[in-house]
């Protein structure tokens, strides 16, 4: 495998992304919960930092951590029904969709990978994903859709992930 570019010192990474992460969490969870989720996001990032596989897109990486925390928080709030949580496997013990997608999408080009994982793994809107990618809603939609086409060509099960 190619020698990975090493990640920047954590301090730089944190300073660079903290405001955007807090804004995202605040919009999803409200201010009070967002502050707890903020700490949780960066503590998880800190724990996982030495094991990073892709250091080329740290912004998307930290957003997937934040998105996972939002998903967990929504589940905790409304454990019963009508929560837009993607594909929670009920009676089987498959890995959560986001974890499986993360692996499957690993070989996609960076932007497509991020768009597919955030859209189908975490159910983020294209507007959110556009913001995360420093791009537009439309570009995010296109990236997700070409990522999905690429995965389909490899025969990846799209029912499982709700690909459209």
């Amino acid at each position: 495998m190619m020698d990975a570019v090493s990640a920047p010192p954590f301090e730089r990474f944190y300073l660079q992304h903290r405001d955007a992460i807090l804004a995202f969490l605040t919009s999803r969870l409200g201010r009070q919960t967002a502050e707890d989720a903020f700490q949780e996001t960066f503590l998880r990032a800190l724990a996982a930092y030495p094991r990073l596989r892709h250091t080329d897109d740290l912004r998307a990486w930290v957003f997937t951590i934040a998105a996972r925390i939002v998903t967990d928080e929504h589940r905790r709030r409304k454990p019963a029904a009508d929560v837009p949580v993607p594909d929670v496997p009920a009676a089987d013990d498959r890995r959560p969709a986001y974890a499986e997608l993360d692996d499957l999408a690993g070989a996609l080009p960076k932007t497509e990978r991020t768009a597919v994982v955030l859209r189908y793994g975490y159910d983020l809107t294209y507007a959110d994903i556009g913001a995360i990618l420093d791009s537009t809603e439309e570009a995010a939609r296109q990236a997700a859709s070409s990522g999905v086409r690429r995965l389909r060509r490899k025969g990846i099960d799209h029912d499982r992930f709700g690909f459209r």
């Binding site: 807090l22 605040t26 700490q39 960066f42």
Partner: peptide, 18 residues
Amino acid sequence: MTVSVSADLDRKFREAAG
């Protein structure tokens, strides 16, 4: 929406990380 991390939240995170 412009949101920035307050000094207090920043301190709490750094303390927890430490």
